[in-house]
Amino acid sequence: MDVELRASDDDRNRVVAELHRHTTAGRLTLDEFSDRVGAVWTARTLGDLAALTRDLPALAADASTGGDATAHGRRELLVLFAVAALTLLLLGGFLAVTR
């Protein structure tokens, strides 16, 4: 890996997913996760991104997911949006019936 290469949004998303897995495993506090994610979005090079995970062990079991983590996150967001929309529809129906 050439550390001077510019990072892409996919590279940043991969690092955020890795940081999330480390937070879930208890290696990072929520404050540390938040600070590092903020630094991810300001990172310019692959070296900048690598520095954010340098003190964390490799996640061999999760490394195979790669791009699937982004797709999974999008599915979760879509489900959350669907639940919110359904809640608003039910609330609107309730308000219409009670007036």
Rank of each mutant, 00 (worst) to 15 (best):
A58T: 09
A71N: 05
V79S: 06
D62N: 12
G67P: 11
D55M: 03
A71P: 00
T87P: 00
D31R: 12
A43H: 00
A43Y: 00
E32W: 06
L30W: 13
A50H: 04
L30E: 08
V79Q: 11
E32H: 02
L59M: 12
G73Q: 01
F94I: 08
L5T: 08
L52Y: 02
L30V: 04
A7C: 02
L86E: 09
A96N: 13
H20P: 01
W41S: 07
A85Y: 10
V3M: 11
G67W: 12
T65A: 12
A71W: 12
G93N: 10
G67H: 06
L46I: 09
G92V: 04
A69M: 10
F94L: 15
A7F: 01
L77A: 15
A50E: 02
L78D: 07
L49D: 00
L19M: 01
L91H: 05
L86D: 08
G38L: 04
R36A: 01
A51E: 04
D48R: 05
D2H: 05
D11P: 02
A43Q: 02
T70C: 04
A50M: 08
E32Q: 12
L90C: 11
A58W: 06
V37M: 01
T23I: 04
L59I: 07
E76W: 03
G26Q: 06
S64V: 14
G26D: 01
R44G: 13
A39M: 11
H22S: 03
L88Q: 11
L77K: 10
A58D: 12
R75M: 07
A7Y: 00
F81D: 15
A43E: 04
P57N: 05
L5V: 11
V83R: 05
R27K: 06
D9I: 15
L95N: 12
L80I: 10
R21D: 11
F81A: 15
A60Y: 06
L5Q: 14
L90A: 13
E4G: 07
A84K: 11
T24C: 03
F33V: 03
A63D: 14
A63N: 07
A7T: 03
L80Q: 15
G92H: 05
D31I: 13
H20S: 10
A60V: 14
L90Y: 08
T70V: 13
A50W: 01
T29I: 06
F94D: 10
L30G: 07
L59W: 09
D68Q: 12
R75S: 14
R21F: 03
L49V: 00
F81V: 12
A51L: 07
A84S: 13
A50C: 03
A71K: 11
R27P: 00
F81I: 13
R27E: 05
L5C: 04
L28A: 00
D62C: 07
R54V: 11
A50S: 12
T24Y: 06
A85N: 09
D55K: 03
R21W: 06
A39C: 09
H72W: 09
T53E: 03
F94W: 15
E76I: 07
D31A: 15
A82M: 10
L91N: 07
R99F: 11
T98A: 10
S8C: 02
T53V: 15
A85F: 10
V83L: 14
E4M: 13
R14Q: 15
